[in-house]
């Protein structure tokens, strides 16, 4: 339990979370303002920001994947836990360990796959068709998103494992 506590108190953990929050706010505001600017430009200045949607989509991807990894931290991903509610506490703790293990394993696997995706993009350098912005700029959000999800879910897995083990000890005692 100390291990988890010290991770959560560490500067690294806090600064990652702080950074994510800043990114979430900035990308959200950016997307809103640019979309509004486009309307204003069209009607007031009768002009068009060519390819602006390519920039908006980059911001959107960072918003999506920073948001979804922050969602793993907040444990706010949608779930339908019907069976856990029917279980006794100890069985529920065990199931929670298994669920967190599966989530961590999947996150790590997808992180590895995302590395492959970004590496391909850096090698071949595909670009957007309008402004010719390299695709890896938006695609790396997927990689970072999965990497952060892996980090948070591993910590939660260990935390739940401790809970389960300590429940076992209490019962023996």
């Amino acid at each position: 339990m100390n291990l988890i506590g010290s991770i959560k108190r560490s500067l690294f953990w806090k600064s990652i979370l702080g950074l994510q929050r800043i990114l979430l706010v900035l990308t959200s505001l950016f997307v809103v303002l640019i979309m509004c600017a486009e309307v204003v430009l069209r009607y007031v200045f009768k002009s068009d920001l060519f390819g602006i949607e390519e920039i908006v989509v980059i911001a959107a991807f960072w918003l999506y994947f920073m948001g979804s990894s922050y969602g793993v931290f907040e444990k706010s991903h949608v779930k339908a836990d019907i069976i856990p509610q029917m279980l006794r506490p100890r069985a529920r703790a065990l199931l929670s360990v298994l669920v967190n293990f599966t989530v961590s394993a999947l996150c790590i696997l997808f992180t590895v796959w995302a590395v492959g995706m970004v590496r391909y993009c850096i090698t071949w350098m595909p670009r957007t068709t309008g402004l010719r912005i390299p695709i890896y700029i938006s695609q790396s959000s997927v990689l970072l998103g999965y990497a952060l999800m892996s980090m948070y879910s591993i910590v939660y897995f260990i935390e739940d494992l401790f809970v389960f083990v300590s429940m076992g000890r209490e019962r023996e005692a």
Binding site: T27, L63, G67
Partner: peptide
């Protein structure tokens, strides 16, 4: 205000990851 943005951005992320 900032909290609302972070909250909605997280909800967005939750929906978008499902979609992905």
């Amino acid at each position: 205000f900032i909290e609302v943005i972070i909250e909605t951005a997280t909800t967005t992320g939750v929906v978008m990851l499902m979609m992905y």
